[in-house]
């Protein structure tokens, strides 16, 4: 077979230049800059910098505060990922059964996806408002005095709830299309082979959703680690004080509030490595996974 190709070898490169330069300017350059500044101690007023080697990293390792934030981030990520996947799966399985009105149901759920994270945060602020938030009142009825931004646990709770709420629609859409791509006849064969609906779900539906689920797992971990920034920022109003925060938020607080650019850069380098590891892991798994065809 003859391969179609470009006459000149420079043309394809030329065509790639805009895309490459965007990546270069907005991703690699800042990343390289962060790596570089993680080895320096910045003057808080921007008058100069001193090379300090790995000192920024070693002080991170020694910091009790950093450890606390890391622990919270892990718990937060696990909770957000688990609940947004589980709820979305539940909703998708139910929605898949609905025949009438399925479209409007899906559209309604999808709208939540269009809500920007800070807006979601504001909605959280309203819902959990100390004096007149409906959820606060509801909790009050059960004797739980909900205290957003004053109580560590309550704030963490609100962060998880809002972050999960924001992420469920995306997962829902993926799970629903995953469910609908399972051949009808395979489900019907299961209907004849197994009388129990839950048995059919765990034996047939769930394994066939596994590729979708794995993809979403990575997406959700990334979301919980990074994209919840807006939600957290709004909920703690830029004044974390003793409130919980995630690693990404700490990068911002230390760098832009604490003016410790070096330490903040070191933290972001650590996060970059984490993303790299996640990505490698994902590609490895995707390669290994059986493709059901």
């Amino acid at each position: 077979m003859k391969r179609a190709g470009f006459a000149s070898r420079w043309l394809p490169i030329l065509l790639l230049v805009p895309q490459l330069s965007i990546i270069l300017v907005f991703f690699y350059w800042p990343a390289a800059y962060a790596v570089k500044s993680s080895f320096y101690l910045q003057d808080p007023f921007g008058f100069g910098q001193t090379f300090v080697g790995l000192e920024n990293y070693s002080s991170l390792a020694d910091s009790a505060e950093y450890l606390r934030v890391t622990n919270f981030t892990v718990v937060f990520t696990v909770l957000v990922t688990f609940f947004s996947l589980a709820l979305a799966l539940l909703l998708a399985v139910k929605a898949d059964k609905v025949i009438r009105g399925a479209k409007s149901y899906r559209t309604l759920l999808m709208w939540v996806y269009a809500v920007a994270p800070p807006v979601a945060g504001y909605m959280g602020l309203i819902l959990f408002n100390q004096r007149w938030g409906p959820l606060t009142e509801l909790f009050g009825m059960f004797g739980w005095e909900f205290n957003l931004r004053a109580d560590y646990f309550d704030t963490a709770f609100a962060m998880v709830v809002v972050s999960v709420w924001k992420q469920v629609p995306v997962n829902f859409i993926f799970f629903l299309s995953g469910l609908q791509s399972i051949p009808k006849s395979v489900r019907e064969a299961a209907l004849i082979d197994n009388r129990s609906a839950s048995g059919r779900f765990w034996d047939v539906t769930f394994p066939l959703l596994a590729p979708t689920g794995f993809f979403l797992l990575i997406i959700n971990i990334t979301y919980a680690l990074f994209d919840t920034f807006g939600v957290i920022d709004t909920l703690v109003k830029g004044e974390p004080a003793n409130n919980p925060m995630t690693l990404v938020y700490k990068v911002y607080i230390d760098g832009f509030r604490g003016n410790d650019l070096g330490g903040s850069s070191a933290q972001s380098v650590v996060l970059m490595l984490l993303v790299l590891a996640l990505t490698v892991f994902q590609f490895r798994m995707v390669e290994k996974r059986i493709h059901y065809t």
Partner: peptide
Amino acid sequence: PADRDIAMVFQNYALYPHMTVRKNIAYG
């Protein structure tokens, strides 16, 4: 369907793609 004591062969076979042949046959 599971209570009717029937077995069905589908046009596109409708095998469980994630199960081995043995498990496919044994599942019912």
